[in-house]
Design a binder for these strands. Structure first.
Lengths: 354, 354
DNA sequence: CTGTCGTGCTAATACGTATTAGCGTTAATA
DNA sequence: TATTAACGCTAATACGTATTAGCACGACAG
């Protein structure tokens, strides 16, 4: 019982001495229809609207038109808790920017689900309140995705997604190419025995990095070590790298890289003089670590912007959406250096001098 | 032309061999009404619902019921651009958390306005799509606020607000008390000549700090210097503090404090040995500065949470809302020390030794 | 004078759900 | 057997807007 009585077109109509239909036409009639309403009447109606401050109820509007200029944003994890915030915020920045430009509002689908177990298709599916939906999160529920595809619901995923009973429209980062690029740079610097530190996850983002890594391996360099850093003490990983003979280590998680670098330093090892480190992706919190890791930049804002644009396009033109991968540019950093064994002599001497 | 044909209660009804009304009743009929539908029928209907995956259209629902479990979030500035992100994110975290708990979704009103000139009451006022609205931003449009109050629209402001043709429901931080507390601590440490560095703005948040500052002045300590730091070179401010004889400077903006501290160090001055510095409020980016300033903590998340709870309460019970100020606890920091003149001798010697 | 066309508007309906009043049938009661 | 009560459901309507079809009226042509 909110108590505030809404003004309706009927009220306006009575005040202006016309019918509800006329009010509606004055507000958003097609030019052809508007032409049939004389300026005098139009002005009278608009005068009443102005003085009363009437605005159409978007809900009723949506009922009638089917669209309401609202974009849903579904995240599989809460968007703002600080742990996630740094992950989601850049996306949201891009999304908000583009949405504002296109004059859409954003509906954050937060209540859909219980605790960590969020569902798009929950009991009270609010998805339909929006004209379409952006879906983001590290890992998607394949079934839900498949259902969205099957229903032909207008949505766009942020981040590459495998087909789910049909192609999934997305805007993602080209992690495979980014990763490959970094591996190639390492190879150019003489590295031939590499380490890969990261989980085996089924998520596309993880798989893409691994794929990019492998594709760069080709005939030349070899994978000397492959560890899943989860629950592995950093020291152990350092030992693994050293004993495997790997001279460059690639990390999925910045956090692991930070731990490993610290452990290496504790053992008197210097990066990149003793071995190189590369982080596969940009991480906001990077600023917190004193070390500027070599990595690539994930264009999160741009992903948000383009995904939003694609979604709006889907909604307004009925297009089916497409698959877009944005390139992730290399961030030089200071943890990727020449292979300490290959053109080694000079290096080692300078190292001693320093 | 999105093309995907929605399932409606009518479809379900036909499939289950009942009427649309029955479907609706099965879904959300009052217990008394439900009692009149035999279990067999109910199960048949729910079976169809399950196999088809039908979910009610929230828009139509809202049409019929008047409420849609959506909370609007209106920000006077875009919420995510990095400059603002650190300001808004904590609020949004609290809001999202509470909204999720109460099973409401959030509608970010981003499109309401052009560029920086956002308006709640724009041409296509989307506000009404939500059951109620949270309003946040550093500075509010008084007229719009007054209109919200006058219309009895269910909203809650985040941050204290002056009356606007009636009391404004809000959850704010008690900046006045927080500021007063810090001034008193400074006085206990012997400071008697204070500097106040910050704008004179009309915004409540600014005014409250100034009020708290003044209230602590009372008979004892005196305001030796009052500068608006905007467009003032930091060095000039340092000079002002020194020449005014002030021994403790209070800053509205962290950014100013950072600049001033740097300028002071350049001149060979040490904080807090030579003069103390206090920042009136917590600032996320504080982590970026190497100096841990003495200040107080603004409980932004809690403000978001409580404001959301109050709003939900307003919506669901029709209550009128209230005014809540949350205490801002002091953050010790390392920039507030004893007055260098009062118990001075010892201090100065230690300073020379270092 | 009849027919056609243009003008200025309105009636009617659709959108999908919630909800109330009430209908037809059967079972229980007097 | 007649009356009532309970049961199991449905018809009808409201919500506020957009939109189409078309009415009534006057002007103008033939």
């Amino acid at each position: 019982m909110t108590g505030h009585k809404r003004l309706t077109q009927n009220d306006i109509a009575k005040l202006a001495g016309v019918s509800q239909a006329t009010v509606s036409l004055v507000l958003n009639g097609a030019p052809t229809a508007l032409a049939r309403i004389p300026a005098e009447t139009r002005e009278r109606v608009q005068g009443v609207i102005r003085t009363t401050g009437y605005v159409a109820d978007p809900i009723a509007r949506r009922m009638a038109k089917g669209l309401n200029r609202i974009l849903g944003v579904f995240t599989y994890e809460p968007a703002f808790p600080s742990a996630q915030a740094d992950f989601f915020t850049p996306f949201l920045l891009g999304i908000e920017e583009e949405a504002q430009q296109q004059n859409y509002d954003l509906l954050l689908l937060t209540s859909a689900g219980v605790g960590n177990n969020r569902k798009i298709f929950s009991e009270n599916n609010r998805l339909r309140i929006a004209d379409g939906c952006l879906v983001l999160g590290r890992e998607f529920d394949r079934k839900e995705l498949a259902r969205l595809v099957a229903e032909d619901y207008p949505f766009v995923a942020i981040g590459r997604r495998d087909d789910a009973g049909g192609p999934v429209p997305y805007v993602g980062g080209d992690y495979a190419a980014g990763t490959r690029q970094l591996v190639e740079e390492a190879v150019l610097l003489g590295h031939s025995k590499l380490a890969y530190v990261g989980p085996e996850g089924t998520a596309e983002s993880i798989a893409d990095r691994w794929r990019g890594f492998c594709s760069a391996l080709g005939e030349g360099p070899k994978l000397a070590l492959h560890v899943d850093a989860v629950n592995r003490p950093a020291g152990e990983i350092v030992d693994g790298i050293v004993s495997s003979g790997a001279t460059a280590a690639f990390f999925i998680e910045l956090a692991d890289a930070v731990r490993v670098e610290a452990a290496a330093r504790e053992r008197g090892l210097v990066v990149p003089q003793d071995f190189s480190m590369v982080v596969l992706g940009s991480h906001i919190r990077a600023g917190r670590s004193p070390v500027r890791f070599t990595s690539y930049k994930i264009p999160r804002e741009e992903m948000g912007r383009q995904a939003t644009a694609m979604l709006v396009n889907r909604i307004e033109t009925g297009s089916v959406g497409s698959q877009i991968l944005l390139t992730c540019e290399t961030v030089a950093g200071e943890t990727l250096g020449p292979c300490p064994l290959y053109p080694a002599k000079k290096r080692q001497s300078t190292k001693r001098i320093q």
